[in-house]
Design a protein around this nucleic acid. Structure first.
Lengths: 189, 189
DNA sequence: CTCATTTTGGGACATTTGGCCCTACAAGAA
DNA sequence: TTCTTGTAGGGCCAAATGTCCCAAAATGAG
């Protein structure tokens, strides 16, 4: 059931064989971690893609004692530090759980095996990458073209779970403003 | 010669067969366009990847009569509007040449043919995508974590060609500040 | 449940940024 | 070349943002 959600999130609308699906299910492992667990530290090479069954997480970079999140993940989302995982390089940032979380994980080597055995699986990875690239590009556009108030409104509309679950300090850093400014935005309406 | 530069930029450090290279060269076409040519209008589906032999270009989105560039390309760089090209969807932004430019182009259908005939070529595309994703993510981090002065210094260090070739109005929009602020930054040092 | 700790929201003030405007300079067209 | 157009830089003022601070509220641990 949960494995199915994981697979479908990766496969999207693409066609897929039954064998691939079955192989995939065998490779998935379930993990439960308490709040504040650091799943990936900066400098480490990420060797898993995760799927959040329950919980909430972020990727952030520490900058002068401040945590700057560049990504949040919610339940039913694929969680992957792109660069570190796909290039197998040390991560720039950390990945941390902000709630007690139940995750599904599949390892890099298993992903490799699936790609070799089922060329279609490579398509899934490419689509995933394309979507992530598009999100980043969109975020760059918003950070350069609209003011903090509108950015907040947009976040509230598109990712209300972030507003609901993350502390003000992190939301404001994610939006590129100070905690004070976010407070002011909230006070206005 | 120029075709070789194009191919090498795509192939990177990956291994490649002679046949692939030869096929690729046959598919490349050279184009020369005057300054200010719009290579891709927003809403169009991009069906080429380009390589800039000579010239300078940007991708931008028009917002309240202001052009917000989200990407600049210089000589010897691969120019591709990722989302529109790879997903074959209408582009969000425009691609415009800021100088008279000489380009090499290869079409989407030809890229498809190369991928089918030479699986290695798919790897090139994935690497390209990975690098672009990483750049975007890095840019997001800079926009949220460092102030305009440092962003300018970084841009000057990492992409001096942008500072040299683009007008102030566009550089400031790219950095997410007003023209006035960029002037002040420049006046300080 | 209670206590310790963290998080939040807001006030005061300094600093930065943006908008508008004008002048000087540079670049492209004829 | 000369003319026209567009771009750069800076002054002035208003608005927005950041920093430092504190008190109230919320949260988690035992």
């Amino acid at each position: 059931m949960e494995n199915e959600d994981f697979f479908n999130s990766l496969a999207g609308t693409n066609k897929t064989s039954y064998e691939l699906r079955a192989q995939f299910y065998k490779m998935v492992e379930k993990e439960i971690h308490p709040r504040h667990t650091t799943i990936l530290s900066s400098g480490q090479i990420c060797n898993h893609i995760w799927f959040i069954i329950k919980g909430f997480a972020m990727a952030y970079i520490e900058k002068e004692d401040r945590k700057i999140p560049y990504q949040f993940w919610n339940e039913n989302q694929i969680m992957v530090p792109v660069n570190s995982f796909f290039k197998q390089l040390p991560a720039d940032g950390c990945v941390q759980l902000l709630e007690k979380s139940t995750l599904l994980a599949i390892s890099f080597s298993n992903i490799q095996k699936l790609i070799e055995a089922f060329p279609e699986f490579n398509q899934f990875m490419c689509s995933l990458l394309l979507n992530l690239q598009y999100s980043s590009e969109r975020r760059v556009f918003h950070l350069t073209s609209i003011d903090p108030g509108e950015r907040y409104a947009l976040l509230l509309k598109e990712s209300p779970f972030i507003i609901r679950k993350a502390p003000v300090e992190l939301i404001s850093a994610y939006l590129g403003v100070s905690r004070k400014t976010l407070n002011r935005i909230r006070a206005k309406k």
